[in-house]
Amino acid sequence: MFSRLREDIASIIERDPAARNAWEVLTCYPGLHAIILHRAAGWCWRHQLKWFGRFIAYLTRILTGIEIHPGATIGRRVFIDHGFGVVIGETADVGDDCTIYQGVTLGGTSLSKGAKRHPTLGAGVIIGAGAQVLGGFTVGAAAKIGSNAVVVKEVPPGATAVGNPARIVLKQTHTAQENAARLFAAYGVSPDGDDPLSKALHGLIDNAAAQELQISKILAALKCAGIGCETMAGLDKFDPASLNRMVE
């Protein structure tokens, strides 16, 4: 028990720059308190002391603002940062080294008792503040869920999910330096931005700018050949740089 507690404290100090020392983490971090009390509630639940398990979970919610069903499975070194408003359902499975911020719900969309109703998080998943992960699917290892995203379908390992409903950005190849920067992304926010809609719009704008340049060269060649071509009014007002800034 004490070895796991030391692990938990060390992982919090590693991931939270505001954590100054082990004593402060042990006494002032409600996420850690919720995890410790959940282990007691889970023991009661697994040994058919279900009312005691639910009662410990109820007290935990009062003390920490974090609600974890005693039937949920929580891995090692899980960090619930700030934590107020976090809800983790009965059949949820949270893998090792996951980070969950305040206001997150790992919820279920099925009313079938005994079924897998809540999500499974692979190792190293980061879920940003206010995100809702709803359903009995899997969020792959090292995936990131952006703040306030609403995820209702499986997320591949290493991918990022952002928006409502969540859009999935598949993992791309990065240099060693970029991988080090992406190893832990606070609140699920990547350094280079991962909104797929924004990236698609940037691509379309750049493509339109390239076509505009190509058309200008064709018109210039036609003019040199003595072939007149009427220019439509307003074409000179196309400004890809300003459009790119609008969708950043």
Rank of each mutant, 00 (worst) to 15 (best):
S11G: 04
G140H: 15
D236M: 11
A185G: 04
W45Y: 13
I218R: 04
A57P: 04
G83N: 09
E24M: 14
N164H: 08
T175N: 12
R182H: 11
G53S: 14
I80F: 02
M246W: 00
L204K: 09
P30I: 14
A181P: 04
H33F: 00
I66K: 04
A220V: 03
A143M: 12
G228H: 09
A18C: 13
G135D: 11
V150Y: 05
G31W: 04
I88R: 06
G136Q: 09
I68N: 00
W51N: 04
A181N: 03
A221Q: 15
G85Y: 10
I100S: 03
Y187K: 02
C28I: 04
Q172N: 13
G128D: 01
A10D: 15
I62D: 06
A159K: 13
G83Y: 09
V87I: 15
H38I: 01
A210C: 08
Q211M: 09
E178L: 11
S216E: 14
I126L: 11
A34E: 02
T99K: 03
D8K: 02
Y58I: 06
V94G: 03
G89H: 12
R39G: 07
S112F: 08
T109Q: 04
N21G: 06
S198L: 02
I205Y: 08
V125M: 09
P196W: 00
G226Q: 09
C28P: 02
L134R: 06
T64D: 12
L121C: 12
L222V: 07
G128V: 03
I205A: 10
L111I: 04
G83V: 07
S190G: 03
I35Y: 03
G124A: 07
T64I: 14
V94H: 02
V247S: 05
A34Q: 05
K116N: 02
R117N: 03
T99Y: 02
L213N: 14
G130K: 07
G83F: 07
K171A: 15
S110V: 06
R6Q: 08
V25S: 02
K237D: 15
T109H: 03
N21R: 04
R182E: 13
A131R: 07
H174A: 00
V104D: 00
H38K: 01
H33V: 07
A181Q: 12
I126Y: 09
T160Y: 08
E14S: 05
V162E: 00
E230D: 15
V139H: 10
A208E: 08
G83I: 10
C28K: 08
G71Q: 13
R46Y: 00
I68P: 07
D239Q: 09
Y187V: 09
F184P: 10
P156W: 10
R46G: 08
G130E: 06
A123I: 11
I9F: 06
R245K: 09
L201Q: 13
I35G: 05
P191E: 05
L243S: 05
R76M: 01
D97C: 05
L213F: 09
A40Q: 06
A40W: 01
A57E: 03
A22C: 03
W43F: 12
A19S: 06
A181Y: 02
S190C: 08
G103L: 12
L37E: 07
A241C: 10
A123N: 13
T173K: 15
